[in-house]
Amino acid sequence: MATNPRQSAVDPPSDDKRWRIVQAAMRRNGFRRDALIETLHAVQESFGYLDEESLRYVARSLRAPMSHVYGVSTFYHFFSLKPAGEHTCVVCTGTACYIKGAPGLLDAVGKEFHIGDGETTEDGKVSLLTARCLGSCGLAPAAVFDGQVAGKVNREAVVERLHAWQNGPAAVKASPESSPESEGSAVYA
């Protein structure tokens, strides 16, 4: 537990105001390395995902090895290293939802939109995610549409909702930024 109370010397990657939230989270924890997960939560909340630039910044600020930061970021299911689509649909795959038809929901989305768990449609509009259990077992099967929990959903309802998102009036947002590698480093010499 090395405490570096005065260490805020590392400048954020840009003057984007959202970095202040991240800095505040680190300062609140005295820039200690054990606040890494809290800090990553702050980054993800502010930017939607963790990109290489932010991981590098967090590593330097907390004086943590970069591989450690990357290791922690990829260990936890909650952190995403890829930007999500404009809208997200989270299907609960807890036991109650499973036996009440969650696999059918995923199957329906997969067939209709060609995306699986953690993937985003090519137009960047819709991301599909799964949750281990939302704790809404009384409402199984449950799904979350842009933060709103919906209970007792069926295949048709999910597909309809996602279609509405895709065809909605929202402006097309370019989001296919460089996504971090997911499979070691594939470099052949």
């Binding site: 290489e52 991981l55 590098r56 970069m66 591989s67 930061v69 990357y70 290791g71 990829t74 260990f75 971090p180 590698e181 499979e183 070691g184 480093s185």
Partner: peptide
């Protein structure tokens, strides 16, 4: 290490 379970891999720096 990055990832977890059977998908764990050894990495250098930010993978």
């Amino acid at each position: 290490l990055m990832g977890r379970g059977v998908k764990t891999r050894v990495i250098t720096d930010l993978a």
